[in-house]
Write a protein that binds this DNA or RNA. Sequence first.
DNA 1: AGCCGATCTGAGCGGAACTTGAGGATCACG
DNA 2: CGTGATCCTCAAGTTCCGCTCAGATCGGCT
Lengths: 252, 252
Amino acid sequence: MRLLLVEDDERVAAALVAVLGRHGFQVRHARSGHEALDALVPDGNEPYRVVLLDLGLPDRDGFEVCSRIRAGSGVPVIMVTARADVRSRIHGLNLGADDYVTKPYDMGELLARIHAVARRGAAPAAVAVSAPDTVPQQRGPLESRGIRIDRERRRVSVDGRDVPLTRKEFDLLALLAQSPGVVYRREQIFSEVWRSGWEGNGRTLEVHIGSLRNKLALPGLVEAVRGVGYRLIPDCPTPAAAEPAPSAPAEH
Amino acid sequence: MRLLLVEDDERVAAALVAVLGRHGFQVRHARSGHEALDALVPDGNEPYRVVLLDLGLPDRDGFEVCSRIRAGSGVPVIMVTARADVRSRIHGLNLGADDYVTKPYDMGELLARIHAVARRGAAPAAVAVSAPDTVPQQRGPLESRGIRIDRERRRVSVDGRDVPLTRKEFDLLALLAQSPGVVYRREQIFSEVWRSGWEGNGRTLEVHIGSLRNKLALPGLVEAVRGVGYRLIPDCPTPAAAEPAPSAPAEH
DNA sequence: AGCCGATCTGAGCGGAACTTGAGGATCACG
DNA sequence: CGTGATCCTCAAGTTCCGCTCAGATCGGCT
């Protein structure tokens, strides 16, 4: 049974490889998200039955890797991270992770969880090769359409112009900007930006979206999806078309 | 989306039913393991998409119920219990539970986990397994016949052309596309696409099917099955050969 | 306390989405 | 070939939902 381990810490990785190996897994070790995505491209070999996504500190990247994996494949993903707060858990699960385990964890439990997701049988590697990088998504301060979002300083600028945002506005934007194009449902937004489990009573969300739109002054950027939620329109004109690229699985 | 809640404490159950209902689940409440097992017997209704197994004190029974459920069905099971020790967790997971959540839990996280296990859909251990190549492809973008359905982005494109769909149209298409070729009964469609098991009064369903057909502009794609429901015609011209109608839904 | 910005709530508006009803087309079956 | 049931289309209603504005409430700061 093949398993893909994504882990940047060599020592942790070595230990895991050893244990997992002893339990019958054939482990492939990827040291970065990029390497992981490469490894997941179908190559005729037996596909991976589960991905163990364990990015130590740069967790932002972990989330991003997860959603990219999800964009092209249905492999079960277990996120393993030190970030134990509920927000992160919910966020990770909403991005498509199948399970979310926080460190420190019990090895036995991790194994049990791996088996639990693996026995569900991965949906057959989903769509063909296509859609490897349909959505360009920078790392670090993410940028698209002239918007620059600095998560650490919680600052946003449009075309160099600094735009002061309130807390909620920023969180909202940061969430949507995580995966431009993806539709975030209202409940999902509430559980990630507000305290989880909170149902917006009034027009709260709309009001904040409204003021966010005003401040950014980029018409059409934040799009409402009727009856569902909101999304950011990515800069590439036709993102949906996604270009099946009939002849060439042109990977950048 | 139907959900089976197994919970012996009336108050906890009531609260959960309320919250889950608000989040679009059609909840059936079983007060005991026995009742739960009864409820899981296939009865022609839409099957449960997930079981929330929350046995407060008589936990012994909880494990047993879980393994019995697993013996007869492939529904995803989430165990919710106060027993937090690693032993119990491992035991529960090894018995076939898909996730194990300990009280007290965060409602938002529970919801996220419910969605996570429901997302991948039950491996239908049910009867209708027949068709071998109609693996319900639950994750990632769906694609067939030049139609690309991206559920995350709620976008559909036909031969690269972006086709804007309304909520109902999209949900309808996404449902049918889950298993091309399989016939979805009207009631089933209503309970999936329209929340709460409300049987459509007028020509609602037909109208939506109509506009969906118009927008997709792929004649013959969405086929009406007289007196039953609708289905998508898969791209493989005729998986017909396998039409011995073994356990055919005898139309009397 | 008093100020001020941030957040929340409620009412009204406009438009998109949904529903309904009637008439015509099609199908299954005698 | 006739008949009833079922499905499709079209053109109204009707509901729902997101947007905006204005005022209320909350919370931090001096």
